[in-house]
Design a protein around this nucleic acid. Structure first.
Lengths: 121, 121
DNA sequence: CCGCATCCACGATGATACTG
DNA sequence: CAGTATCATCGTGGATGCGG
């Protein structure tokens, strides 16, 4: 049966796409990078078209895949923070370049670009 | 209803991922780049885990999205060649960078890497 | 040889309600 | 606040057969 496990992967391009592919992974990493640290609710507000379920699920995948660090504060109300790991930090240059490529293309096609307002401290 | 159209896209990261995301797009572009031009059957042999249907479908998407150029030779038996466009060529550096990141990670995890044998002429 | 058409299974995603 | 649980649905992709 379908080995979902990445161990049997062959091509590096394939491997990389499996790790950061998916509908929201790129954007999540990018937003966290821009803010250094984000809480669950903040992320949800940044990525407006994601549901609670998908956000939770994707965050878990990224965490299990060692691309996100999750810190839970044992408080009431709860507080959970997400940060990049060293591995995902090493991925940022790529995402950024891809983003610049996207901007170039979008300008060519006159597609309005929504910049994510990084709450730069 | 669900606007599949990319026109309403907002974030450039999202835009870029939509264009080259997907299970096979990255690999297809990469293989064609490595060989400059590939025929349908050659592509299918390179990407061993793809079905005829998915290959056809993905190639169409890439073509419609201006990331592939398709040339049909009116012969019997048929012959169809696929090449990169200027737009997808401008994308290659990023794919390559992503690939290098993948290679680094795979080495860390001792995952065997299958190099695609580019039939360098 | 290079596809396209059809049918079908299943996983991915969405909507909504509920909880510690 | 940060999720979980459940149900419905939609798209992706596989299998097969046909056709120029």
């Amino acid at each position: 049966m379908k080995e979902k496990n990445i161990k049997e992967t062959i091509c590096a391009v394939d491997y990389a796409f499996r790790r950061i592919g998916g509908k929201y992974k790129g954007r999540i990493l990018w937003h966290i990078y821009n803010n250094e640290v984000l809480r669950f609710g903040e992320l949800k507000r940044h990525i407006t078209d994601i549901t609670t379920k998908m956000l939770t699920q994707t965050l878990r995948e990224l965490e299990n895949d060692n691309l996100l660090f999750r810190k839970v504060y044992p408080e009431v109300p709860p507080k959970v923070e997400y940060r990049l790991t060293d591995v995902s930090k090493s991925l940022i240059p790529f995402i950024n370049q891809l983003r610049e490529w996207g901007i170039t293309q979008m300008k060519k096609e006159n597609i309005p670009i929504r910049e994510h307002e990084a709450s730069k401290k």
